[in-house]
Structures are given as C-alpha cells and as structure tokens.
C-alpha cells in the first residue's frame, strides 16, 4: 500500500525531467514508472474505460516529453502538470460522450478457489460503479485524494481550485459514495467484517 503513495521529493521529479531533456533515457524510464501507473488508475476511474485511459496517459506523457526542454524550474511539479493535462483530456472525452451511458470497467472472471479475492473484486467494482455516479469534479477530487493519496494542495493545483474547494468536493463525494454503498453491505460481505 505504501508503494502507491511513495514518490521522490518534488525537486527529484524536475531533476529527472531536466536529465531527460539532456538526453538521458534512464530518466524518462524513471519518470514513466513514477507517474504513468498512478495516472492510468486515475484516468481509468475518471472515464470508466481502461482502453481510453491508456490513450490519454500516452498523450499526456507525450506532452510532458515535448515540454521537457522548455521546463522552467519552480513551476508546477511534472506529476502535477501531467495530471492537469490528463484531467483536461478526460473532461474533453466525457463531454464528447455526453448523453451516452458511461461504461464500467470490466471485471475479469474470478478465480474459483479464492473467495476472498472474489469479494475484494466485487467491492472494488462496487466502488468504481459508485464513483461513476458522482459528478465529475467530485469524482476527480475523491480519486486523487483517497485512491491516489495526493495532498489537498496537490489536488488544488491539478484542478486549479482552492484547497477549501478540494476539501468540500471530497467531503461531498465521500458522503455520496457512502450513501450509495450503504445498501450493499450484506451483498458484499461487509456485515461479516
């Protein structure tokens, strides 16, 4: 669990980008491994579609590579910048499909010998389902805060709003999620915990 929240100090990300701009492909690999997995999870939850999420991750990372030679030290951190780009790309996709029914990520067939794993998958699917019912901005804030573990100031920078607005969005989002999931306790084995 800690692995998901681990990241180098801010200066480290900018330093890696500078090394990439100077021709160091190892730095590109390090940045990719640092940013892309979290970005993919975020985009998949925003869109409810892992394939579309992959397209957006690739596009957002490409924009980062192109930006590298002109990166100004002291501006937003590379990861914050990429998340902001991806957020805008996700918003564009969601607008384009407005009126359509959002797709829920497919859950792979469960292994018959792992009841607990089955239950975990069902709970994960229920949460993803409930997330897709949240208003877009609440979903962004909740995913970034509670699933990706970003700080409120980081989320504020990504969403280009104030920290108080982030707190408000996450609080309202959590309340709605809790209300939505409350009815599924017995079905998802919560009462056995």
């Amino acid at each position: 669990m800690q692995r998901m929240h681990a990241k180098p100090p801010p200066a480290g990300q900018a330093a890696l980008l500078a090394r990439f701009a100077g021709g160091d492909m190892d730095a590109a690999e390090a940045l990719t491994d640092l940013i892309a997995p979290r970005l993919l999870r975020y985009c998949a939850r925003m869109l409810g579609d892992p394939v579309e999420a992959e397209d957006i991750v690739q596009e957002a990372m490409l924009r980062l590579w192109r930006m590298a030679p002109d990166w100004q030290d002291g501006q937003a951190q590379p990861m914050t910048w990429v998340f902001r780009v991806a957020t805008n790309l996700c918003t564009d996709r969601l607008r384009r499909r407005r009126g359509g029914v959002p797709e829920i990520p497919e859950i792979a067939d469960a292994q018959p010998d792992a009841d607990t794993h089955l239950m975990q998958r069902a709970r994960a699917a229920a949460l993803e389902d409930a997330l897709m019912d949240l208003p877009e901005r609440q979903r962004q804030a909740v995913v970034l805060r509670h699933l990706e573990g970003l700080s409120n100031p980081e989320i504020a920078a990504i969403m280009m709003i104030g920290v108080e607005a982030v707190e408000s969005l996450t609080a309202r989002g959590k309340r709605q999620l809790a209300a939505r999931l409350r009815g599924q306790r017995a079905e998802l084995g919560y009462e056995d915990e």
């Binding site: 709970r123 229920a126 999620l177 999931l181």
Partner: peptide, 17 residues
C-alpha cells in the same frame, strides 16, 4: 465501510501494461 471499499479498489487497480 468506505475505507474497506477503497482498500479493495486500490488492490484491484490496473497496473501499467
């Protein structure tokens, strides 16, 4: 309860292919 769902979702999240 929400924390249990969040924990499950983190564990089931897709990795980078």
């Amino acid at each position: 309860e929400l924390e249990i769902y969040v924990t499950a979702a983190r564990a089931e999240a897709p990795g980078l292919r």
